[in-house]
Design a protein around this nucleic acid. Structure first.
Lengths: 209, 209, 209, 209
DNA sequence: AATGAATGAGAGTTCATTCAT
DNA sequence: TATGAATGAACTCTCATTCAT
């Protein structure tokens, strides 16, 4: 029930000099994230992942300690870099509006680059927060929220953003509007991520009217 | 294999004059929708539902034909009335902006009244669309989308809404921003649904700047 | 919902050169056919089969897709070879009386070799015919019946068999008399299958009087 | 697991002066025997019986102590009178051949009158013999077998029947040929029971040749 | 007599996981 | 590394039976 303690296999990087060996690991992770995103984590079986990879279910355990370890690796690989990119943008210290725009552009490029990981993050976070082993998900999410709130409030103070609404509500509004796009945005589809980002920015700044 | 045909017990209404009779059915449905929303449909077991209701798992089948039948009843009870309310607003034929505002207010009142059903709808729809028995979910969703699109386009034609962006993108933006609120909105919390609706309307119409 | 498609494990043959490998599959089938014959298909549980084999019930599913798939394999393994043997005898084109005798001898040798499968076939066919997945049982049975009828009618025309009764009634009489022997015939008992066959042939041809 | 001790309800006859009261009991028994014969005893649920009768499953227990009690009553109602009719024929002391013919005619008339009970007897006896509560089934069957054997042997001694085969084998041959007819004989069909009986007698006495 | 709610045991089946090879 | 057999717990669902009304 609890999250299995990750063994070395979970965290270990590419063994140097092993050539194509690690390819199977990446392949499994790619297959897993797609299935987790598409069918849901609980609904995806190790057999599903193994079948799509062309090995047997039991063999996955040579690469990952557990199903949860796969989820863990997926979420860390998505959440930590995202947090770092957001923090970097904030550190650059541009104007609030430019910073806000950059946060939004990063979000869309993230949806573009890792739509499956984003979907998994969105769909599974609620359940995960109750599990100790996934506490870091909540922590990174909270720090990311703080970045958004600081930027929004700085914008309100500087006059770049209207001061007449609650920053928290605005944050939630923006966050949900952006991240939910993962449900319909298709990387290979008609809409380019920059286009969507620009339309969203336009809607967000200028409003419907 | 799709939602099993409900037995007689399923379709029959409240036994007349029996006061609290039939309460067990409603109680089970309330417990189920909360668990489905909180833990997810697949992750909720019949035992979970039974335990929370104070009966044995097998006894649920006296009231519902299957777990899927419970989900079915929950979704129908949420989706069909919502569709009807939207359709009624459109039929009233007010101005595009008033109509749009009303759609948004209805959405928030729906989140307020049935947050669990909304969450279930949001979380499970993706998987459900693949199942024949839940085709009606896709159909109602599509008709609801058409209502939003008609209203948005009417607004653009009448000049009430900016014409310089794609109605479909705007719809998705609005839809996601609103319905995702179910993830953080708590009926008993500080924020009143009307307040949230008004802030969202304000953000939406006027923009951040 | 009919017999589930066997997974890869089901269709694959004996792993070459592995000696006793795959024995578990056969062992399970032998245990299953005996239990199905003795207790009845519905009354036999997967746990019964597993217990008698020395594994856990869930482990059966490593070898067979379902209980029904086991029944299916048992029936095919009995019915198709039997049909082929009957058809081969008919093709040989001996005289009607020799052919008839041969059909009867084959029947008894079949009861001798696979008494359990015969019993399962006899006891479960009625219920099975209603299921689409077991349509082949009805089809083979019908073709076997046609062989018997052709042989009987040829015998009547050639004068080798009395012409004064209905071939269909005679077929049913013979079929039931023979196949019901599975209920009392014991392969290891006093009566040899050839003896029983001969006595039956004698009774059948010469009558009681 | 064991057969429930029959309560008074099981054995009690028609309460005098209760008018149509017992009709429901008979109705249930008729429905049950048909379902037991058609689907098998184990495969028939109390709900099946109740549905076909127009009451709820629980209500059956006002008339019968258990499902097994219904089976018990069905088998007794078939087996005991049959045994008595056979015994009466034997007591009459006609010639062996006339007696044998009469046994066969009685058998066919029994199939004609109570095809469902005969089918249940044939299909379920094997399993039943292992249960203490159904010991009487084995006992009556054994006594019936003895009657047949006495008649056959008397026939062989008197020269009315060929002496050159084992009476036991002949008995099994006859029994199976006759009783199996229940599988295809339909009371309302083309073949009259007397016709079938006569054809069987003819086949039996004169043989095929 | 009948209802309808509930029980509790057990059914077939699934699945993450382990491990000898 | 991968296989394939097995585990064991949990799952959805069924059903004979009980009992207050």
């Amino acid at each position: 029930m609890g999250v299995a303690k990750p063994r070395e296999t979970v965290a270990k990087g590419e063994p140097a000099g092993s050539g194509a060996k690690g390819g199977r690991r990446e392949q499994l992770l790619e297959v897993a994230v797609e299935l987790f995103a598409t069918k849901g984590y609980a609904e995806t079986t190790m057999r599903d992942i193994a079948d799509a990879t062309g090995i047997l279910a039991g063999s996955i355990y040579h690469h990952f300690a557990s199903k949860e370890a796969m989820l863990d690796e997926i979420l860390r690989g998505f959440l930590i870099p995202l947090h770092e990119r957001f923090a970097a943008v904030e550190r650059e210290g541009g104007g609030p509006r430019e910073t806000l725009s950059e946060l939004i552009r990063i979000s869309f490029s993230c949806i573009h680059d890792s739509p499956h990981a984003v979907a998994v993050y969105q769909n599974e976070t609620d359940n995960l927060l109750r599990q100790e082993a996934f506490a870091y998900v909540g922590e990174h999410s909270a720090r990311i929220e703080q970045i958004w709130l600081r930027v929004l409030r700085a914008g309100q103070e500087s006059g770049a953003i209207r001061p007449d609404f609650d920053a928290k509500v605005a944050y939630l509004f923006i966050r949900d509007a952006i991240w939910s796009a993962v449900r319909w945005y298709r990387p290979g589809g008609q809409l380019r991520p920059e286009t969507v980002a620009d339309q969203y920015l336009d809607l967000l700044y200028g409003g419907l009217v």
